[in-house]
Design a binder for these strands. Structure first.
Lengths: 228, 228
DNA sequence: GTCTATAACGAGATAGAC
DNA sequence: GTCTATCTCGTTATAGAC
């Protein structure tokens, strides 16, 4: 019975993986808005109703793809962080930024799914939050390590932002100065601005040597969060 | 006959405008990927074949919407620049940034159309380039004015980036230092990272007082391009 | 119990004949 | 410009295989 259960569980895992794999293929070809359970089933030689044993609705399938994408990106970032554990803070920062960019370039459609336009009629549930937070936590970890080690450069903070900065710090990293967390959130958004512009074509005919440009830009970002 | 011709031209303009208006409504409801000439025609009480007298294809309609969106955003930015002609460079910079954010918040679907995920199967033609460039030219203008007036702060440039920086400067603004243009292009992308994160929901449960946060962040961006 | 297959619903898009 | 026949879709109910 334990082997039968094991076999069933294994089969279930494999089918689930095959469904997501095919769904990702469709994501690339038609976009998230047109992702269709029927098409996925057809391509897999299944009947559409059979898919409901694995995903209770189309939206749940989308959610699974979104979580997978966030996790895949988060893992890439964590690998880069861990591989540079002994390096200087700025070097770790840029290494993670480059890992993010590298992941985006190799997974453009999954990147568009999580950081591009919202899918009409779909609202991401709270279950996506932990996976979505992983990249951010990697950056927080680097800044925290720098803070406890060589220290952070002093940063200024606009007068009206104190309350909000304290709130964000309490939420995200109580052990860090509020100005650092504020700067970090801004840098986080700005990093994805650089990646999105490259990926979505805004750098066409503008930036040619994108790798060098990116490294220069994110080194600047590292400085704005107080790393050195 | 000249009155008849004038009336015809006017009618054509009006129908064209009505088509685009309805198309924008669909953009909001279903997203760019599902924009269909048929649905637009139906909603307007026309027959789909009649639409082809105004737009030769769905892609051309999309292109028109994209150009309109870029122009609308560009105008908002230009208005903010002109309204602050006598202000300090940093104040002008933040005013234009806030105009960009304000436009995005009031036109979220058009923003997603031009700065969100690419539409599958659609490639923007070169005709969109001039409209797309308008916002960028506004920022270049502000930096140029500052350079000719109170001057720019000195900026560093990564060693390997000299060639690319010179190329970009020659392309975009030969009268500005190459480091300034490089920093400006980065800041431009980073600005849209801030706006996209707010608009696409990444700031949910993270940034609460978004207006204050945004102003703080773009003031920081102004400094990274050498304004003061 | 776990899965797949058949059939059907209501809604929307599409193609072509007229 | 209209009408109709035929597709697609998400989703459910049901029946039967393993």
């Amino acid at each position: 019975m334990s082997t039968a259960q094991g076999a069933r569980a294994r089969a279930r895992k494999e089918v689930t993986a095959a469904i997501k794999e095919e769904a990702r293929r469709q994501l690339a070809k038609e976009g998230a808005a047109k992702l269709s359970l029927r098409a996925v089933a057809r391509e897999l030689g299944m009947v559409s109703s059979a898919l409901y044993r694995y995903f209770p609705s189309r939206d749940e399938l989308l959610t699974a793809l979104i979580i997978d994408a966030y996790d895949s990106l988060g893992e890439a970032a964590e690998r880069a962080r861990d591989a540079t554990a002994d390096a200087a803070p700025v070097a770790r920062w840029t290494a993670v930024c480059e890992a993010v960019r590298g992941w985006a370039l190799t997974h453009p459609h999954e990147y568009a799914l999580i950081y591009g336009s919202p899918v009409p009629g779909y609202a991401a549930p709270q279950t996506t939050v932990p996976a979505a937070a992983r990249v951010g936590l990697v950056f927080i970890g680097i800044v925290r390590d720098a803070h406890e080690g060589s220290g952070l450069a002093g940063l200024s903070l606009a007068a009206g932002l104190h309350a909000e900065a304290e709130r964000m710090a309490a939420d995200l990293a109580p052990e860090l100065p509020a100005e650092a967390i504020t700067a970090l959130v801004a840098a986080w958004a700005q990093l994805f601005g650089l990646v999105s512009f490259e990926l979505f074509g805004q750098f066409n005919k503008v930036v040619e040597d994108r790798e060098t440009f990116f490294r220069h830009a994110v080194t600047g970002l590292a400085r704005t969060v107080g790393l050195r």
